[in-house]
Each structure stands twice: as structure tokens, then as C-alpha cells.
């Protein structure tokens, strides 16, 4: 289990590598890839459930790192956070674009392929707790009611949309939407109060 201390050490190391990458240091770029690619690939593959699409998105993301390492260094955010956001956004754009096509063709999206989450381990809820633990924001996550907690974990780790969440949790769409909205509001208040905004 990664501790908060280990994570901050890693972020520091990665930030150093990135500033070298910004200067065109190819060896630093290779090191940076070695230290981050397994994490980012795990994020992408969980959301996309498609190894080939995940590999393509990973490749694009690192090409982007090579070109824009300088702007990262200027922005001074946490390197892994920055990169995780890039990869997640690309995955979600990919999913939602596909969904847009499907929705246009078949407004009744009960036809969407069923998603089998049964054999996944650890479960999204467990991951949510593990990540939160590492950041000492466990309290915030535990403070969420069961419904919002589950909905947020599934959306974050599996990339499920409102409609997919409703089907997966077997709840009306309106309930799920309000779980997500209220859960996020509560999470924000709690994380900010806990000093999560660094």
C-alpha cells in the first residue's frame, strides 16, 4: 500500500524528471515512462476495458508529455495527477464519443453491451478506500452514504455514465444523478476542510 509519504516522494522524483524532459532529455523521458506507465495503463484499461484502445491512449498521452513537459513544470501541479487527468479525460472522451454515436442511432440504450464487473478485483469501492487512505481523506469517503459512495467509485474507476450507473446499481436514473451530485458536493466540502486542496 502506497503511503502518503511514499507518494509525495514519488511526485518529487517525477517532477525532477519532467523538468529534464522539458529540456529534451531522452533518458529522463524513458525513466519517467518506466515509473508512470503501469499506473496510467491500469487507469486506462479499467475505464476502457479494451487493451488496444488503452495502449493507443497511453501512447498519445506520452507524446503529449514530451511536447508539453514545459507547461507542466510552469503549472507546478503534481505530475501524476496531471498525467492521470490527461489519460482519464482521453479515455472518457473516447467512451462518451462512442456513446454519442450509439445514442444517436439507438435512443433506447438498453441495447448497450452489458458490462460484467463481477470478476473485477479489487472492487471500485475498495480502490476508493485504498486511494483515500493514502491521502488521509478516508473520513471523507466513509462519510458518504452507501449509494453516493458506490456511484462515485463506479464512475471514477470504471468510467460509467449516469445511465450505466442506474442500470448497474438497479436504481432510477434520477436517484443515481442525485447521488452523484450530492456525493461530489459533500466530498468537496470534506476534502477542502481536511486540507486536501494543497
Amino acid at each position: 500500500m502506497a503511503t502518503a509519504h511514499a507518494i509525495s516522494e514519488r511526485n518529487h522524483r517525477l517532477a525532477e524528471l519532467l523538468s529534464k524532459v522539458a529540456l529534451g532529455d531522452q533518458r529522463a523521458f524513458g525513466d519517467f515512462y518506466r515509473q508512470t506507465s503501469a499506473h496510467l495503463y491500469a487507469v486506462a484499461v479499467r475505464i476502457l476495458r479494451d487493451a488496444q484502445a488503452a495502449e493507443e491512449i497511453l501512447q498519445e498521452a506520452y507524446v503529449n508529455v514530451w511536447h508539453h513537459a514545459g507547461s507542466y513544470v510552469a503549472a507546478k501541479s503534481q505530475p501524476l495527477t496531471w498525467l492521470t487527468s490527461i489519460v482519464r479525460n482521453r479515455c472518457l472522451d473516447h467512451l462518451r464519443r462512442r456513446e454519442l454515436d450509439t445514442v444517436t442511432l439507438t435512443p433506447d440504450d438498453d441495447d448497450a453491451p452489458a458490462i460484467d464487473l463481477a470478476d473485477e478485483r479489487p472492487t471500485p469501492a475498495e480502490l476508493l478506500l485504498a486511494g483515500a487512505e493514502a491521502r488521509a481523506v478516508r473520513d471523507c469517503v466513509e462519510a458518504l452514504d452507501a449509494g453516493p459512495n458506490q456511484a462515485i467509485a463506479l464512475a471514477y474507476f470504471q468510467g460509467l455514465s449516469h445511465g450505466e450507473l442506474a442500470r448497474h446499481l438497479n436504481e432510477p436514473l434520477g436517484t443515481v444523478k442525485s447521488w452523484v451530485r450530492r456525493g461530489l458536493e459533500k466530498l468537496r466540502r470534506c476534502l477542502d476542510a481536511a486540507g486536501g486542496s494543497r
Binding site: 503534481q78 493514502a134 491521502r135
Partner: peptide, 8 residues
């Protein structure tokens, strides 16, 4: 993103 950090 804090949530993703402990993902294996």
C-alpha cells in the same frame, strides 16, 4: 486524482 493513486 487522489483516489487513483493507490490503484495497483
Amino acid at each position: 486524482a487522489v483516489l487513483a493513486e493507490a490503484m495497483p
